[in-house]
Design a protein around this nucleic acid. Structure first.
Lengths: 338, 338
DNA sequence: TTGAAAGCGCTAACAT
DNA sequence: ATGTTAGCGCTTTCAA
C-alpha cells in the first residue's frame, strides 16, 4: 500500500478511501479512477487482517455444524453462506469460518474460543444441543449468536427452525387418515429439541385420536441408520407390532427398512414407514419413501437475516421463527388390508 | 492484555511469552503459572488478528471445494481439517477457511482473492479443473497451493490423489474376469483429470484384451445422477447394447439404474454395472452395488502433510502421490448366462 | 478533497 | 528472566 501511495504520489489514507465502497465518494473521481487502475495493475490486495485490527470488525461469521455429512445441515449451511456472501448492502461480504463439531462431544467450547479469538462478527450454530447451552450463552455475551435448525430451550437466543412439532403431527395425521391404530416412533436423541418436538407433535395427535402409540422406551443415540436399525429391532421384537412407524429422519428410516428386510418383512407393504427430511436417500430407494420435507430455504434465509441485522445493530429486536414442513407422500405410509 | 499486564505488574511482552507454546520456556515457571492463572480468570483471549498482523502468519488454511454434497470431497475435507487441527508440533493448530466454489464456474478466482486477503498460510484445492489452472498458478506464487483429489495436468503443483487410472483398470479387469465382451462407460466431465484417468485406465485394459468398448461419444456435463441417466438413455438406445457398464461415480451409476428400471430392465441382472467411490448410496440400494473404494484417508493424510511441510518451509521438495483404490465386489458386475 | 498523525493488539529484536 | 521499543498494514479522526 505504501509502495502504491508513493508511486502515485498520494497519501495512504486516500488509497484506503478510494478502494473502499462506503468512503469512495469522498475522493475526487479522477484520483479515484487513477488509484483503482494503479491498484489493479499492481495486483494490490488489501490486508484484511490489518483492516480488522483497526476497525474492530472482521466481516467474518463463525458457523458451527455438527455433521458435514448431514444433508439438511449442509444444505442449510450452504444457503446461509451463499446468502451472506451475496450481501452487497455495504459492499461487504461476510466470509464464513466453518467448524465441524461432532455431535454432543462438548468440543463446541473449543471452536467458540477459536472463533472469538479470530474476532468473528457473529456466530451461527446449526444443530446445537442442550449440552451446548452454557458455552453458547457465554459466547453470546461477546457477539451475536444465532441458532439455526435446532434451538435450545434453556436459553433465549434468536433462531431459525423448522416447526418440528407440526412435522410430527403431519405424520400422525397421515397415519390416522390411513386408519392405522397402532403406531410407533423411532426417536432421535432427545437432547436435541428437533427430535423432542417431532416426538411430542406426533404423540399429541395420536393421544387425541385415541390411537395406540407403542413406547419402546428408548431413542437412538445418534440419528443415523445403524442406530435406527437397533431401535427397529427392538420394535420388531415387541409382541404387538405397530402397523406404522414414524422415523425422526430418513437415515433412521433406512435402518428400519434394513431391519424389516432382515426379518423377511416386505417394505413398504408389511409395516408402513414415514421418514423426515426428504433427503436424496429417500428418493433413490428402489421404492421411494414418504417423508417430511424440511423448509431449508426459509430456515437459511431467516438465519442469514438475523445475523446481518444483529451485526448491524446488536440491540436489534429479533424474532425467532419456525417454518412449516410439508409431507411428501410417496405411498409408504398407507395401510394394507390385512 | 494491557489490563492483565497492569494487574499482575508485568510487561505485555512477558504475557505474550507466557501464553505462547514455543516461547513459554523463556519465562520463569512461577511467573508463567501466575500469568496463566490470571489470564484464565480474566477470560483473556488473544486477538489472533493482531498476532497475524505482527507475525505475518495467520495459522489459517484456505480450502476450496466444488460441492459440499459430494461425499468423497466432504470426507477428504473433514479428514484434512481434523488432521490440521490436531497439529501440535508447534502447538499451533491451523484453522480452515472453507469455500464452496461450484463446479467449473470460474468463481474460483474470487475465493482465492478472499483467501489471500485474509492471509492464509496455504491453500488446498479439492476438485480443481483444468479451467482453474491459471488462477491457482497465480495464487501459488504467493502461498503454497496443494491439490487434493484432482490434480491438474497443465501445472505442476504438489498433489494428493487417487490413482484413478488404476481404478478404471480394476473395473475393466473385473468385467474381463466375468467374460463381458461388449462394455461401455458413463464418463464424468472430461475437464477433470479424475474422470479422464478413469476413462483411460478402463479403455487401455479393454483394448489390450480385445474387448469391444462402445463409444457413445458423450460424457456427463456433471457427475450427478440426472446426467448419468441422460447418458444411460443414450447407451440403452444404441443397437448393440453393452453387457456391462462402468460409471465414473456412484451417482451416475444410480442414474443408469433408474434408466434401466424405466425401460423395464432388471438391475443388476440385465446389464452389469459398477460405480466408483463406495458412497453410502451404493450400499443402501435394495441391491447394493459393486463400486471402487476411494482411498480417502491416504489422500487426506498426504494433503495435510504437504501443507504442513510447505508452510514450515516453502522450499520443501515435495512429492505428489497417488494412492490405489480398491474394488468392492457386491456382485453387480457379474455376467448372467444369456 | 487530501494529508498528517495516531493507534488497533500483538510479538520480535534488542537491551538490561 | 524480563522490560523497552518499534512496527506489522490498515482506517480514522482532525486539520488544512
Amino acid at each position: 500500500m505504501r509502495a502504491l501511495a508513493d508511486s502515485i504520489g498520494v497519501d495512504r489514507a486516500t488509497i484506503s478511501r478510494a478502494l473502499s465502497t462506503d468512503k469512495a465518494h469522498l475522493v475526487a473521481p479522477a484520483t479515484r479512477d487513477l488509484i483503482r487502475a494503479a491498484a489493479a495493475a499492481a495486483g494490490y490486495r488489501a490486508d484484511l487482517m490489518a483492516a480488522t485490527l483497526r476497525r474492530g470488525r472482521s466481516d467474518t461469521v463463525g458457523i458451527l455444524v455438527s455433521d458435514m455429512m448431514n444433508e439438511v445441515l449442509v444444505r442449510v449451511m450452504r444457503e446461509i453462506v451463499t446468502d451472506l456472501n451475496r450481501d452487497q448492502t455495504r459492499g461487504q461480504e461476510l466470509t464464513p469460518l466453518i467448524a465441524e463439531t461432532g455431535d454432543g462431544s462438548g468440543h463446541i467450547g473449543h471452536f467458540l474460543r477459536t472463533f472469538l479469538s479470530r474476532r468473528v462478527d457473529a456466530i451461527i450454530c446449526l444443530s446445537a444441543t442442550e449440552d451446548d447451552a452454557e458455552a453458547l450463552q457465554a459466547a453470546a455475551r461477546e457477539v451475536p449468536v444465532v441458532l439455526a435448525v435446532r434451538s435450545i430451550s434453556a436459553i433465549d437466543l434468536p433462531s431459525a427452525t423448522c416447526d418440528d412439532g407440526a412435522g410430527g403431527a403431519l405424520v400422525a395425521r397421515h397415519f390416522l387418515a390411513h386408519h392405522h391404530r397402532v403406531v410407533c416412533q423411532i426417536q432421535g436423541p432427545q437432547t436435541a429439541t428437533t427430535f423432542r418436538n417431532r416426538a411430542a407433535g406426533f404423540s399429541v395427535v395420536c393421544r387425541e385420536a385415541g390411537v395406540r402409540e407403542l413406547s419402546i422406551g428408548t431413542s437412538a443415540r445418534a440419528a443415523i441408520s445403524s442406530e435406527g436399525r437397533a431401535v427397529a429391532e427392538a420394535i420388531l421384537a415387541t409382541p404387538d407390532r405397530p402397523t406404522a412407524v414414524f422415523a425422526h429422519n430418513d437415515s433412521m428410516a433406512l435402518g428400519f427398512i434394513e431391519a424389516m428386510r432382515h426379518q423377511g418383512l416386505a417394505y413398504p407393504d408389511d409395516i408402513a414407514i414415514v421418514g423426515f427430511n426428504n433427503t436424496e436417500l429417500s428418493r433413490v430407494l428402489a421404492r421411494p419413501m414418504s417423508t417430511v420435507e424440511y423448509p431449508v430455504a426459509k430456515v437459511s434465509g431467516h438465519a442469514a437475516d438475523l445475523v446481518r441485522a444483529l451485526i448491524k445493530n446488536r440491540e436489534f429486536s429479533w424474532e425467532s421463527k419456525s417454518f412449516d414442513p410439508q409431507l411428501v407422500d410417496r405411498g409408504t405410509g398407507v395401510k394394507r388390508p390385512a
